[in-house]
Structure formats: structure tokens, C-alpha cells
Amino acid sequence: MIRSALTISLPILFGFVPLGIAFGLLFQELGYPWYFASLMAVFVYAGAAQFMAIGLLSSGIGLLEIAISTFFLNSRHMFYGLAFLQSFGNWNLRKLYLIFGLTDETYALMTTIKVPKNFTKERYYFFITLFAQLYWVLGCTIGALAANALSFNTSGMEFAATALFVVLLIEQWVKVKRLLPFVIAFIASAIALLFFIKHMLLVAIILSIASIVLFRLFKIQPNE
């Protein structure tokens, strides 16, 4: 099971390590010891929020502001758990960790893959989540350590995250085979980009879910 989870989580490696390195490099500019970048990856474990934190920390902003901005930046995660209410199993430490590790990437991967029949879902998810966080910690640590010594040109590597989401989008299409969610999300994204570019992710997700509920409630069934 561990090998299978490792293999299936590898796409996240290619997204997380370069992004983590970028974070580590930037974080070092704040002047803290390198291991704080690793600690951030272990405890906070939220890509976008960590990047935002670099800016906030350098301005010496208050803790309440940090809490509120982190909360709103990550509030899209509130919708991610919906897909796993059952599959994370009963309340125990593992479930608490699975929830802790629910990032964009793990959500995307775990809602797309099929868990092999002979494996327990929550255990399989646990290893994927664990490996994903290890990649992130690894990336952040490398970046912080190598801040002065990096000789490999990593620019452009951030495209790996885009490519991962594209691949998962194709897989979702194969799995879902209904046009409606994709069209709704596309229109919602366009609206969010036009009017709420700062909170694009959250606005687009809320608009999409609201629209799909409306479609369902009014039993609008477009020919698909």
C-alpha cells in the first residue's frame, strides 16, 4: 500500500518541491534561521498562506491581522472536506491529520484517483497526505538551506503545479462526463476574475456551488 500511495503521490512532489524551494528562498530574506521555514511547512502547511506570511511578517503586522488574512485566504478549504465526510473514517488521530493535510493538491488528487480495492481508503489517503506533506517540508527546507548556495536554475518550475491541476482536470472529465460543473465553474471563474480578482478562488467556488444547487433545485437538466 505504501508503495502504491508513494507512486500515486509523485505528481504532488513535482508541484510541491519547486514551490517549497521558492518559499524557502523568499523566507530566508526575513533573516530567521533556516529551520523556521521547515517548521512553517510542518505546522502551518498551507502554500498560499505561507507566501502571504512572508509579506506580513516583514511588515511586522499584528497577530489578529495574520489570523484573519490566513483564515480568509484558506477559507476555500471549507468546501474541500465535503468530499471526505465519509471516506476519512471515524474520529481518531489519523482523521485529524487527514483534515490537517487537506490542501489544494491532496484534495485534487484524492477526489480524482480510485483507491485500489484491496486497500482501506483512510489508510491509503493517510499515506498520500503524509507523503505530500513530506514533499512540502523537503522543498521548504531545501529552499531555506540553499538560499545562498543554489546553483540550479529553478525558474519556470512553478508550472508543475499548473500542469498537475490540468492533468487532474482531464481525469475529472473522464470520471464525471457531465459538462455542467465545468461550464458553471468556468463562468463563475470569469465573473470572479472580473469583479473579485483579489478573492478569485473563494468567490469562484462559492458562485459555482450556489449555481449548481440552483440548477439542482429547479431541476434544470440541460441536454448533456
Binding site: 485534487a108 480578482i197 456551488i209
Partner: peptide, 19 residues
């Protein structure tokens, strides 16, 4: 809702990355 959310989120994330 929970079945429709993953394809929507994936679409949104791709657009977000490209914005």
C-alpha cells in the same frame, strides 16, 4: 454538491494558476 465540487474546483484552480 460534494460530487460536483471536485470538477468545479479543478476548473477553477487551473484558471487561477493561469490568471
Amino acid at each position: 454538491i460534494s460530487k460536483s465540487t471536485p470538477p468545479m474546483v479543478m476548473t477553477i484552480l487551473v484558471i487561477y494558476m493561469l490568471k
